[in-house]
Design a binder for these strands. Sequence first.
DNA 1: TGAAATGTTGGGGCG
DNA 2: ACGCCCCAACATTTC
Length: 473
Amino acid sequence: MAFNIWWIRRDLRLYDNPALMTAFKANEGYVIPLFILDPSLQISWESRRFVFLIKALHHLNADLRSRGSRLIMRQGNPLSVLTRLVHDLPINAIFAEADYSPYAIKRDNEIKKTLPLQTVGGVSLRDPDLVLKADGQPYTVFTPYSRAWRSLPLELAAPVAAPVQMRSVPQEIDSLDLPNAFELPYYLPTESEGQMRLESFINTKIENYALRRDRMDLEATSNLSPYLRFGLVSAQQAVRAVISYCAGLPDEDRQAGAYSWLNELIWREFYNAILFHFPTVLKEAFRPGLRQINWRVDTAGLQAWQSGQTGYPVVDAAMRQLQETGWMHNRARMITASFLVKDLLINWQEGEHWFMRQLLDGDPAANNGGWQWTAGVGTDAAPYFRVFNPVLQGQKFDPVGVYVRRWVPELAAVPDKYIHQPWLMPVLLQRDLHCRIGVDYPDRLVEHDRARERTLAAYQESLRASDTQHKIV
DNA sequence: TGAAATGTTGGGGCG
DNA sequence: ACGCCCCAACATTTC
């Protein structure tokens, strides 16, 4: 009997998985579920999403075993691993979910030359080269992109059921044994947890999502990002849930939340497409004029930022939330990114790198897009002089400091009035509250107003320099 | 998916 | 009553 390989990359689920189902149906259930640890992806225990991934694989293996199958894990270059399997075993075909990252495209094209690899479905809802401007060029601004994205018909197939009973994988096929003793208290990396989160978000939060999504003190978002990142929930399923939610609503006013959440999914599509069309964004700023900013090299500042010790409560709360949970609220990502880049004048790539290490949902396309956007050096019209004021952002999106107090316990007793600018507390009050600035909680690393001026000057300098070079050429 | 700086208007206190 | 000043509130421009 011959097998099909279901090559798992970033779609670790059994439900609604076209690649798996194609492999399964085409071959009477004789499927080898395979995951390859690829060293050239340079993901290791240093990155926290690796823990999420490995745990998710263990859970997937358990799910497969309950269906009579099991997961085969291998390590090495995918082409050689697959070639060896195809050589050793009777293999009909290899099925995998389409992935549009530059590395994945290159890898898959290489493999397709010699092996029967077929890509089915995809990480994105729309193929990156199907959403283009009238002149055939890719969009580089989000709003027109999202308009075009929405205007195209969305051909969502009905969800594919998970296979109930699978054929066993022969014992002689050996599998890597990976450790499983890690704590991941905030995000259980299972398919059913992802399903539950999606369901409960749609049932209780999506209605007010547009109004509340920016509030860091409320649990108003879906917290689905790690699940989407590793395909424990498919993007297709998320959109299906939105559509059926809207279909059940009598008046369109109440669809605002759904519209807004779909927009976030479209951001994900947008940055997948940007990376597809402009792969160099992983190496340099999208905007040529902002490639020679004179960044500060400030190890101590970077470390203070990383560990949540900047003296700005919202920034510190967010960075500690990231450290503790592996996830950060979207608004907080913008605030902390803005702080690193525009207050500390540290290269946005340092932040990009740190986020990739810390985030369970760390994804090159989305993370790079977000950092370039905040730094004002990327696609979209976010002007470089748009600088977040951490005090005002705190007051707007964490009005009474619930978020700050949760993650920065040393500020727990600080009155609302001072919660986002504790350095204004009278010294006597600081002493009474056991919250002395500079002792119990750090003093501000920089003064925002002056830091802002410094950064605007550095950006203008880069623009001027690049302009001059242009004229000389 | 911002905020600061600057400009304009209009109401009220006051001589 | 009137003009003047102050400044809050809002609008516009600039970074």
